[in-house]
Design a protein around this nucleic acid. Structure first.
Length: 599
DNA sequence: CGGTTTTGACCCGCGC
DNA sequence: GCGCGGGTCAAAACCG
């Protein structure tokens, strides 16, 4: 392995002449110097033989000249030998250097693994101890819950977890080797990650998938819809297209679909087994060739929960309001595909590495080289992997009363989730000790902290993040700094760390919205006629005349945060004009919505 | 009239 | 090989 790994370091190898093995002195018999010596001997014998037939004068002269020639040849042979030895030395040194590099990387990797292991919550450890077939990559499962997570249910959910089990090292390896440059604007950065087929994901493997997707070639289930793909989306499908990740978003929503800012056309509906609610199939109509599709289905156990599964990346410019969700889903997919899903604990640092910080990944889960990213409290991601589709689930449901909807939690998730056939789920609870609630209700994201019901409810998540950013050295008691400072700090943190979580972004958005507007509604500075996003909190109640469950809560905090991020940047800040609430035309985007303010 | 939704039929993979 | 189930197609209906 070491020998194989050494070239991967990219170190320029010394030029080695293949016909001249750089061996030690043992191999010198084949060296040119020896050859020349042999030639010399042969010549000497030949000359001696010839000298018998010739006169002594001429033979003496010839002997003289021959000895000179021999000496010259000897000299050149010696220099040649010296060169060969030098080359051997160089080769040995470079080999040693490669070995050193390898060892260093190995130590780094082990260190990361060790750190990761320390940060695993206890239930993760329990989970790890479970004999699980999660050893296979096919069953990767992570969970990120953006809602409060009661401890009891956390334990349940922990049982579902498996990614942090025996495969942790593998996952970290994947995280180290993968970075998914999910893109939503197809042009800028050539994405370089594809889904891995095998547990041993590598950069090589990850090179294709995104590229294909970015090129607008969606690798929809190769098995299915070949006809469809050929006709509409793709010109050519690879013989063995890689699996593509799915991102499942669970959110409380009374409407038929979540309003994620995209235009969708329904192309099918099916009654899925085990769920009385029909599953609807939508296609993105933003571009005729846009490969993105989504499935919408209500949770069988809790009809108020809408499960939206996204698949594919948009190959066209998205409405700004859509970039948020697209970014979120893509980031989640990135996380899944990169194996960074091993992060689990509150303040967990994911050992994910970003392959490119220049991606358009609006809400990257990745951290640049040595940066850590922190998952907000109560955020959870469930990722599961079916034989055909790795799936990551962003649970945006909240459960203010932990017992009201037990089924919405991941402990029961597999039974209610349409992808329940996925053999494993793992839930990573990022700490719910503070009883934070981040909920997404019918187009509004609300974040409640139960411990301070009367205060501004939306500060905790990024406070935690900021606290982590400050390395907890200050060990400040949990408090809520003045909002402007907080926003500035959050902005700074976000801009400093592009890997900030989408969920955190959502929370931040709501924070800023509540803080900036005070009424829970932030209006666009450019177009004040439409709310940028609306927030519910324990203190404020807003009505959403818009459509359905908006995902654009992630969008448009530009007015509050002086972010320099482009619309497709790490945070999707969009103008109000493009918010889905203002788009009542598409029924799929926002059919007959009404506001659920129960949270 | 163009776009969307509905819905039965069809295709295909997978498990038995 | 067969049945099941998920996913998609495509024509008709619907809607603004």
């Amino acid at each position: 392995m070491e020998a194989a790994a050494a070239p991967a370091f990219g170190r320029p190898r010394p030029v080695v002449k293949p016909e001249k093995p750089a061996g030690d002195s043992d191999d010198d018999r084949n060296s040119p110097s020896n050859q020349s010596l042999l030639i010399k001997k042969e010549n000497h014998g030949k000359e001696e033989h010839e000298s018998e037939d010739k006169t002594s004068n001429s033979s003496d002269q010839k002997d003289l000249s021959c000895t000179k020639i021999q000496e010259e040849q000897l000299e050149s042979a010696r220099t040649e030998m010296g060169e060969v030895r030098e080359e051997n030395q160089r080769l040995k040194m470079s080999l040693g250097q490669i070995m050193k590099d390898y060892e260093a990387l190995k130590m780094q990797f082990l260190g990361i693994v060790g750190r990761e292991a320390k940060k695993l919550p206890e239930h993760d450890k329990e989970q790890r101890q479970r004999p699980h077939d999660d050893q296979t990559e096919e069953t990767d499962l992570v969970s990120l819950t953006l809602g409060r997570y009661p401890m009891a249910e956390k334990k349940k959910a922990a049982e579902e977890k498996n990614i942090n089990g025996g495969d942790k090292e593998e996952a970290v390896k994947q995280a180290l080797s993968l970075g998914l440059n999910c893109k939503f604007e197809q042009e800028s950065t050539p994405a370089t990650v594809k889904e891995a087929h095998s547990p041993n994901r590598s950069l090589t493997i990850s090179a294709d998938h995104e590229t294909k997707e970015d090129a607008g070639e969606t690798n929809w289930p190769p098995s299915k819809g070949l006809k469809t793909m050929r006709s509409a989306d793709d010109d050519a499908l690879p013989p063995n297209p890689p699996k593509r990740a799915r991102v499942c978003v669970r959110a409380r929503c009374e409407t038929t679909t979540m309003n994620d800012g995209c235009q969708w056309r329904k192309y099918g509906q099916k009654i899925a087994k085990g769920n009385p609610c029909p599953r609807a199939y939508y296609r993105c109509t933003g571009s005729p060739t846009c490969p993105v599709r989504k499935q919408v289905q209500r949770c069988a156990d809790d009809m108020s929960i809408l499960i939206t599964t996204y698949e594919g990346n948009h190959n066209h410019p998205l409405p700004a309001s859509a970039t948020a969700m697209a970014s979120t889903t893509s980031a989640a997919a990135s996380m899944l595909l990169s194996g960074s899903s091993t992060s689990s604990a509150p303040n967990t640092t994911a050992a994910a590495s970003s392959s490119s910080s220049s991606s358009n990944h609006a809400l990257s889960f990745y951290s640049n080289s040595k940066q850590n990213f922190y998952l907000p409290n109560n955020s959870s991601i469930i990722s599961s992997t079916s034989p055909t589709h790795p799936t990551i689930t962003l649970d945006l449901t909240s459960n203010p009363s932990s017992t009201s909807n037990p089924s919405t939690h991941f402990g029961k998730f597999p039974s209610s989730f349409p992808n329940s056939r996925y053999p494993f789920t793992s839930q990573l609870d990022f700490g719910s000790s503070r009883n934070n609630v981040l909920s997404w209700n019918n187009g509004v994201l609300s974040y409640n902290r139960n411990s301070h019901p009367a205060t501004t409810p939306t500060n905790n998540i990024y406070q935690n993040y900021i606290q982590h950013q400050r390395n907890t050295a200050m060990s400040l008691p949990h408090q809520q700094p003045p909002l402007p400072d907080t926003i500035a700090a959050a902005t700074k943190a976000i801009t400093a760390d592009p890997s900030f979580q989408s969920a955190l972004a959502a929370a931040l958005t709501s924070i800023i919205g509540s803080g900036g507007a005070g009424t829970g509604t932030v209006k666009s500075s450019a177009r004040s006629e439409q709310p940028l996003f609306q927030l519910t909190s324990t203190a404020t109640t807003t009505t959403n005349k818009g459509n359905g469950c908006g995902t654009s809560f992630l969008s448009n905090i530009t007015t509050a945060t002086p972010s320099n991020s482009p619309p497709t940047g790490n945070m999707a800040f969009v103008p109000a004009s493009s918010l889905p609430f203002s788009n009542p035309k598409s029924a799929s985007a926002s059919p007959g919505d009404h506001i659920d303010l129960t949270n």
